[in-house]
Amino acid sequence: MYVLTIDQRGSSTDADRVPDLISELAGLTSAAFERSVGDELQGLVDDPAEVVDIALHALRSGHWYVGIGVGTVVLAPGSSPREGTGTGFVAARKAVDLAKTSAGQVPLSVVSGSIGRAAEVPQHAREGAVACANAEGVLRLIGRLIQGRTAAQWRVVDRLRLLQDGGGRHGSQKRVARELGITEQSVSRAVLRSGWQEEWAARPAAAMLLAHAHSQIEGDR
């Protein structure tokens, strides 16, 4: 289980964006997100690919700090995540706090729920911590691509994703050009400059690293 804690940036001088993000995330995952405290929301996610989707969606707007905790979760059936305990929650809190101190970097952190002094932590848990750090590195690289996109590039890549999610592949760029009323060359440039292909090539690597971290931290080898 992955614990995601997402906190709004600059909330003291901005509108409350938590309800909108909760609504948006409902379209990405079946996991329930809810306000935990103040301008912060929290959710528990099983699928590492969904963790990647959620984290990158939050990073896109530039309004959020994203913390991902990988560890144990103790939660009674039907209970709110706010009632949960376990190392995953502790790790998520540390992760979002670290994201807030990432000056000049993409505001995301992934933290292992392994506990104890280094000498006491089993080898597989140490490997899980390394996988968390590697997942963080990949997610920050993708996040940098996402946060650097222009509005025009987003119009193109958002439309491409809709078509590809619907099973469309061959001729998708031609169709996007036609639908947006722009040239195929403009679509090609947007795809190239936005890092669209690099993003989707790297997403599975981030998910794989998160899955490996979870298996090692939980000891399920």
Rank of each mutant, 00 (worst) to 15 (best):
A152H: 07
W154I: 15
R193W: 03
P122N: 02
R155N: 15
V156P: 06
G137K: 02
R189D: 11
Q153F: 11
W154D: 15
I142Y: 00
L141A: 10
V121Q: 14
A129N: 11
R140Y: 00
G195K: 05
L139H: 03
Q123R: 07
S194A: 04
V191N: 08
E179A: 12
A119H: 10
V121A: 08
R144L: 08
Q123Y: 09
G181E: 08
L192N: 11
R169D: 04
E184M: 14
R175E: 09
V110W: 05
E198I: 14
L162M: 05
T183D: 00
G195H: 03
I146G: 00
S194W: 02
R144F: 14
W200I: 15
G168K: 11
G195I: 01
G143S: 00
R203Q: 11
E136V: 06
L192S: 15
A119G: 07
Q164P: 10
L192G: 11
E127P: 01
L160K: 01
E179N: 07
G143E: 01
Q197L: 12
G171W: 01
Q173K: 12
D158G: 09
I115P: 00
G116W: 04
A118N: 04
R203P: 04
R161D: 09
Q147A: 14
E199V: 02
T183P: 00
I182A: 00
Q147V: 14
V130M: 11
V111A: 04
E136N: 02
G171E: 07
L145T: 07
R203T: 10
V157R: 01
A133N: 09
R161M: 09
E198S: 15
